[in-house]
């Protein structure tokens, strides 16, 4: 069963008199439980594709379906609901809120889902346990190392049990040891929880740890193969 399908997905940017086809008529299907990477050089359109898949941006033409639901005609509030219920995001710079502790950061998506505080706390602690950070639950982001911060961000992405986790250069800020740790963690979560994970990266070391690698160049799929 496909978690995500795109058909003729296109995103065109106009800068002055120049038009750029960041994503150019892309057809793609991601199945449930997949662990894949989207590779490509800088400016290839991989981050734009991630934003389109994550309902953060709207396509110029073509369609995106998430968990069987076509997103093209949806209003901003409905798109926010899809992001809230179906998608978990992991970013390169972790994007943890500095005023909140680790566990409060993990609770944030549940807060937007209007989950009750006690239940929220229980699930957030559970998610932190899954990434091995139970003992750092009450630390603020400033007190965490880069690797730990990214693990908190991963816990935040999976706490809502999303249909799809989208990661944008999740190891971009980390050293090799931490990169390997994070990739191993994501793979474990994928296997244990049957979590669908799509990672945007330009790092071959990251790509080779996924099971499917989609290479993108100039907004088009250059290759799509099992790693």
């Amino acid at each position: 069963m496909s978690i995500v399908t795109t058909s003729g997905l296109t995103k065109v940017y106009t800068v002055g008199e120049t038009t750029i086809n960041a994503v150019d008529g892309l057809d793609l299907a991601i199945e449930k439980g997949e662990f894949l990477s989207i590779m490509g050089p800088s400016g290839s359109g991989k981050t734009t594709l991630l934003h389109l898949l994550g309902c953060l941006d709207v396509p110029t033409s073509g369609t995106v379906s998430i968990d069987g639901k076509e997103t093209g005609e949806l209003k901003p509030t409905a798109l926010a609901a899809i992001r809230r219920e179906k998608i978990g995001f992991i970013f390169q710079e972790f994007n943890l809120l500095p005023v909140l502790s680790a566990v409060e950061n993990v609770e944030l998506p549940l807060r937007y889902q209007k989950v009750k505080p006690a239940e929220r706390r229980r699930r957030a602690l559970e998610a932190l346990a899954k990434v091995g950070l139970s003992e750092r639950a009450n630390n603020k982001p400033g007190q965490l190392s880069g690797g730990e911060a990214q693990r908190v961000a991963i816990a935040r992405a999976l706490v809502t049990e999303p249909a799809l986790v989208l990661a944008d250069e999740p190891t971009g800020e980390l050293d090799t040891t931490n990169t390997i740790r994070i990739m191993d963690l994501l793979r474990e979560l994928n296997e244990q929880l049957d979590l669908t994970v799509a990672i945007v990266t330009h790092d071959p070391m990251v790509a080779e740890r996924t099971r499917r690698v989609i290479s993108i160049r100039d907004g088009k799929i250059e290759s799509d193969k099992a790693a």
């Binding site: 953060l56 926010a80 609901a81 992001r83 809230r84 978990g88 995001f89 994007n95 944030l108």
Partner: peptide, 16 residues
């Protein structure tokens, strides 16, 4: 701004 972007990414609505 980044925080607002993050909050919107993880499901906060305009109203929130």
């Amino acid at each position: 701004r980044r925080e607002i972007g993050l909050k919107k990414a993880i499901g906060a609505t305009t109203g929130t």
